[in-house]
Deep mutational scan, measured.
Amino acid sequence: EINVTSHGEEQAKHWIELAKRMNLDVEVEIHGDKIIITIK
């Protein structure tokens, strides 16, 4: 399980695309200006 804290939408999209390509599950939480991505 990987937790990524992203401070930008572009960076977040990059991680989500990467996870989808690798067929991994992704959870995205938004806390103000921080985007927390959990890849399982």
Rank of each mutant, 00 (worst) to 15 (best):
E1A: 07
E1Y: 10
E1V: 11
E1P: 13
I2E: 03
I2A: 10
N3E: 09
N3V: 15
N3W: 15
N3A: 06
N3D: 04
V4F: 10
V4G: 05
V4R: 03
V4N: 04
T5D: 04
T5N: 10
T5W: 05
S6Q: 05
H7P: 07
H7K: 12
H7A: 11
H7W: 15
H7G: 06
G8E: 07
G8L: 15
G8A: 09
G8K: 06
G8S: 12
E9L: 15
E9D: 12
E9A: 11
E9G: 06
E10G: 06
E10F: 10
E10V: 06
Q11T: 11
A12F: 13
A12D: 07
K13P: 05
H14L: 11
W15M: 02
W15T: 04
W15H: 05
W15F: 09
I16F: 08
I16E: 04
L18F: 10
L18D: 04
L18G: 03
A19D: 13
K20V: 15
K20H: 13
K20I: 15
K20L: 14
R21H: 14
R21G: 08
R21Q: 12
R21M: 12
R21S: 10
M22F: 14
M22H: 07
M22G: 04
M22R: 01
N23S: 08
N23W: 15
N23G: 14
N23V: 15
N23A: 10
L24A: 02
L24V: 04
L24F: 08
L24P: 01
L24I: 12
D25K: 14
D25H: 13
V26Q: 00
V26P: 01
V26L: 03
E27T: 13
E27W: 11
V28E: 00
E29Q: 10
E29D: 02
E29T: 12
E29V: 09
E29M: 12
I30N: 01
I30K: 02
I30G: 01
I30T: 02
H31I: 14
H31C: 11
G32Y: 10
G32A: 11
D33W: 15
D33R: 03
K34A: 07
K34R: 08
K34Q: 07
I35P: 00
I35K: 00
I35E: 00
I35L: 03
I35R: 00
I35T: 01
I36N: 02
I37W: 01
I37N: 00
I37K: 00
T38Y: 08
T38P: 00
T38M: 03
I39Y: 01
I39V: 03
K40E: 02
K40P: 01
K40G: 03
K40H: 03
K40A: 03
K40R: 08
K40C: 12
K40M: 04
